[in-house]
Each structure stands twice: as C-alpha cells, then as structure tokens.
Design a binder for these strands. Sequence first.
DNA 1: TCTACATATCGATATATTTGAATGTCTTGC
DNA 2: GCAAGACATTCAAATATATCGATATGTAGA
Lengths: 109, 109
Amino acid sequence: MLPITEDEIALIHRYVCEGIGDPKRLMLLYLVADQPRNVTELTKALDVAQPTVSHHLRILRERGLVTARREGASIYYALADPRILEAVEVLRDFVAELLHKRASVLNRP
Amino acid sequence: MLPITEDEIALIHRYVCEGIGDPKRLMLLYLVADQPRNVTELTKALDVAQPTVSHHLRILRERGLVTARREGASIYYALADPRILEAVEVLRDFVAELLHKRASVLNRP
DNA sequence: TCTACATATCGATATATTTGAATGTCTTGC
DNA sequence: GCAAGACATTCAAATATATCGATATGTAGA
C-alpha cells in the first residue's frame, strides 16, 4: 500500500475526501446510489434550499463522483462508480464497531 | 447497502470523513500506518509547526483512527485499524482511473 | 411567444477550520 | 530539584466552506 506522495494525497483529498466531506453530500451520494434522482427530489429529501443542493451536486459532478443526465426539464443524477460507496461502507462498519466498543467501555462495572 | 439514516451519516462524517478530510491528516494516517512514529518524526515529515501536528493527531485520536502509546518522553502514534486505509486505497484507485480517463478525453484527436 | 417549471449561478453572510506563536505540562537525566 | 526535550493546549488571525435569497438560464407545452 505505502508509500504515497504529497501530490497523490492532494488528488485523493481534492477528488473524493472533499466530495464525501460534507454530511449533505454523503447523503446525496447514498440517495443517487439507490436510484437516479432529479434535483427536485433531492431537495425534498435533504431539507435544504434548492441552490444548496445544486451547489453540492456541482461539487460531486466536478469531482466525477456523480453523473448528470438531462431528461426533459429535469436532470437526473446517479452515482458514477459503486466503489465510492463501497469504500464508505467499509468506514461505516468501522464506525459502528468503534462506537460499540466505546459504549462497552463506558458500561463496565 | 442502502438505506441509511441522517443520524448514521452524521456519525460516519464525524468519525471518519472529518478525520481523513484534511490532506495533512491523510498523510499522517499513511505515515503511522507504515510504522508507529512520534510527534517529532511526524512534524519533520509534514513540514508544519509542531502544534499543528498535535492538533491533527488529536482529531485522529478522538475519532479512534489512531492509537497513542507513550514511550519515555515520546508518544508513538499508530494506525488504529487497517480498514481505514484499505477504504482510502479503494478511493485512490478510483481517482487514478478517473484522472486517466479524463486525460484520455483531452488527448483525443 | 408566453407561461410554468426545473436547475444553475451570483452575491452576501454565517460558520467552521487550519495554522502557528506563546505557553503549559509531562518525562528523563543529572 | 532543576534543566532540557517532547508533546499538548490556548488564543488569535487567516482561510475556507456552507447556506440561501435573488436572479439567470434552460426546457416543455399551449
């Protein structure tokens, strides 16, 4: 695995870490992974203003994390690559275990 | 995989996305994954002030991404779980492919 | 072309984050 | 106990980011 250069770190950070680095964007990724959705649907699901959703979608689009396909007046967004959320799922398991362990420690007699 | 709740999104974000969400911290994770290192060594490797390194290490420690073990006057940090960087490596591959594809598009006749 | 709807962009504000100088705390060796 | 090295914390400044109202652009249908 190792080593890695600062340049490559910068690329990973810019393309994916910045992409998944906001809770709203992470939720957007899960939503469009389930099935392609347009901005109106995503705005309703996220409980934020539409420009905010467009802003987040732009960030995801520019970084290649989602694809956009126009269909009539709507634009449907989809997850660009399943590996993105596969990686997040690994981290999800890690967090679940971590919190479980920490809870156990707190409950010890 | 799906679905996911906003609460779980918040936990994943807080514990791992925030952790790997800074280039310096990502580099720290790679450095301590290679082998446990103390703050002095990490400060030299990162080219930032020592308080900055301590700050980043604190964030990684609080989120359970690294462990700290005192050895004399030094404190050695290590990667808490290999899955953390395994997930990052998946994203690293994704980014490498993405940039390769984008470069190909640009170079088409 | 006019209207209604869908999405993107602009601009301003609020909030969060990174950074390092100064300083405090802990450990070791004398 | 004291001095020196290693690390953490505090605080302030700089920077970045999220958010949304207002507005522009694009699309479809009458």
